[in-house]
Design a binder for these strands. Structure first.
Lengths: 145, 145
DNA sequence: GTCAATGCAAATCGTTTGCATGAAC
DNA sequence: GTTCATGCAAACGATTTGCATTGAC
């Protein structure tokens, strides 16, 4: 697994800035997230860590702590789809929303500029300063319907 | 607390149709949901039941079971906002989405026809048969920013 | 050497389940 | 009388926390 030096450098910078310690575990978790092309639960991240870095005796609590930390500093983000609990994805791709098949669980990502624009306008009309959003369309995908 | 006879009648009809039993507990939970003007967690519903119907010795498990049942038959629906877990609201109001203040937790409802239309179109483009959706805008409300 | 981060286990939270009892039909 | 729903407590899965130890600086 190759690493993603720009983002790793970014993490180092942030950690230093906050006067915290740079650890191998945080780097491993971030690296897993950067290579994942799916939305992962904390447990899935934990399993991937054990699989890809078998020598690093990392605990599940550390994975949770690392994920919270990475979300806090905006390197990854989370959404709560239905019953599966919180899922994480890295922030290095551009923004997008999700179409979710309620039968097979397949997730398709999409982006729509018009919807984004209207969201901004609605926020403005309600005197909200928008910081993020989450939109999911649920339904049956082509194979399931 | 006055009851909402049309919806209650609807519940009775559904229960009968399914060959199940009509119980006071299901009616109480539905009635709480009909009078709530907020998005409630199961625990909040439980507390409201105890407060409004102190004589009904209802258990938390029954509240969970009643909420699942009511959601299944489409009298209420749920969304999972951030960390607070699943929240329920009654389905007697028209469809809407949510603006959520990340500081004070305030929720403002809104509806936008254009967004709905574009969602339908995106679903169609991806060959999805849409059954529902959930959209939340996060930010700071007028008083918090 | 200091202080933060880790690993482990125990604790906690929200939710679900098993089972004997009670209520609806 | 049969069957479903309830209440309670125990079980459960996911996440968090306390604490002694380790590692970064």
């Amino acid at each position: 697994m190759k690493d993603n030096s720009e983002v790793i450098a970014e993490l180092k910078k942030i950690v230093k800035q906050k006067g915290l310690k740079y650890t191998e575990q945080r780097e491993i978790v971030l690296n897993i997230m950067l290579h994942a092309n799916a939305h992962l639960t904390a447990e899935e991240v934990y399993n991937l860590v054990k699989e890809n870095y078998p020598e690093s005796n990392i605990g599940i609590a550390t994975v949770y702590r690392a994920l919270s930390f990475l979300e806090e500093v905006d390197l990854i983000s989370s959404i709560a789809f239905g019953a599966d609990g919180k899922k994480y994805e890295s922030n290095d791709k551009s923004h997008h929303d999700h179409l979710i098949c309620t039968k097979c669980g397949k997730i398709v990502e999409f982006f729509d500029k018009d919807i984004e624009d209207r969201q901004d306008r609605i926020a403005h009309e309600n005197d909200f300063e928008i910081t993020g959003h989450s939109m999911q369309l649920y339904g049956l995908c082509s194979s399931c319907k």
